[in-house]
């Protein structure tokens, strides 16, 4: 119990330390440049304290419950898959690691749905678009992108192929998609790449990458362990743009059909 309380204090302190520079900047600009008081300062202050407390509690809980489980699981799964493949020590067969790809996709999806930063952006997108962009739809689309990205990233670690190939290919897909997308969704889609990799996703995904690189023969955790976060930041852009393009096409196709039915 004492340990737990000490942990709470420590996390609260470190969250406070992260937030302090931002608060100082905001206050300085508000006071020195704008020279006016914030509207509804009480609401903003209580809200900010809630954000701080909530984030600290969230982090403590993650450290207590999720991260140890996630990390041991990543390790055990990669070891298990590695042991099955161990018969031929130097020939790594990527098929032997299918459990790892499955786990990567599942955990990538699940952690993204829980990511507080993504919840914030989805709420804002729903508000700004007047409900045309559904908060859940956006979050599911992003989570599917992260799932595919992390899974593919694990495949890359197992096969040891160079990281730039994948990332450059993904960029080319994004560029092509951009030309087929409606202008309104593009900024949001680009943003969704950056917001996915935060508090929940990064530690779990990084543990998975390091565990995998340490257990696959011929891979070094230092060189090959990197890159999963990069995968998790590019693929959501592809999935959100893809979802928007398909939804747009289906919508147009439907209205055209309806018109044809009405005209004759």
């Amino acid at each position: 119990m004492l340990d737990f309380l000490a942990n709470v204090g420590e996390t609260l302190l470190s969250t406070l330390r992260d937030v302090t520079p931002i608060v100082v900047i905001l206050v300085v600009f508000q006071v020195a440049v704008l020279r006016q008081r914030l509207p509804n300062i009480r609401g903003i202050a209580t809200g900010s304290v809630m954000v701080l407390l909530g984030l600290a509690l969230f982090l403590i809980g993650l450290e207590q419950a999720l991260f140890p489980v996630g990390e041991t699981m990543a390790q055990q799964l990669t070891e298990k898959a590695g042991a099955g493949a161990g018969a031929l020590a130097d020939a790594v067969r990527w098929q032997d690691y299918w459990v790892v790809y499955l786990f990567a996709a599942a955990i990538g999806f699940a952690t993204t749905v829980a990511e507080p930063a993504l919840i914030a952006v989805a709420l804002k997108a729903k508000e700004v678009s007047g409900g045309a962009v559904s908060a859940w739809g956006l979050r599911i689309a992003v989570a599917v992108g992260v799932a595919i990205g992390v899974s593919l990233g694990c495949f890359r670690i197992v096969t040891g192929t160079p990281l730039p190939w994948y990332i450059v290919a993904a960029y080319v897909i994004v560029i092509v998609q951009t030309y087929f997308s409606s202008r309104t969704i593009i900024p949001l889609a680009y943003d969704s790449g950056g917001v996915t990799t935060s508090t929940v996703t990064v530690p779990v995904v990084a543990a998975l990458g390091l565990g995998l690189a340490a257990n696959v023969p011929g891979r070094s955790p230092l060189i090959d362990g990197f890159g999963l976060i990069a995968f998790a930041s590019v693929f959501p852009i592809i999935s959100v743009l893809g979802y928007a393009i398909v939804a747009d096409r289906v919508g147009r196709w439907r209205t055209r059909n309806e018109r044809q039915e009405v005209e004759p």
């Binding site: 508000q30 900010s48 909530g54 403590i60 809980g61």
Partner: peptide, 29 residues
């Protein structure tokens, strides 16, 4: 289990505070 309770409560507080604290702050600025 203790950790999971913390995670759920923390996320609820965070999202609730977001709409009354961080969003208005950013927008007012």
């Amino acid at each position: 289990i203790v950790g999971l309770v913390c995670v759920v409560l923390g996320l609820a507080l965070f999202v609730q505070g977001l709409e009354s604290g961080l969003f208005p702050l950013g927008e007012a600025l």
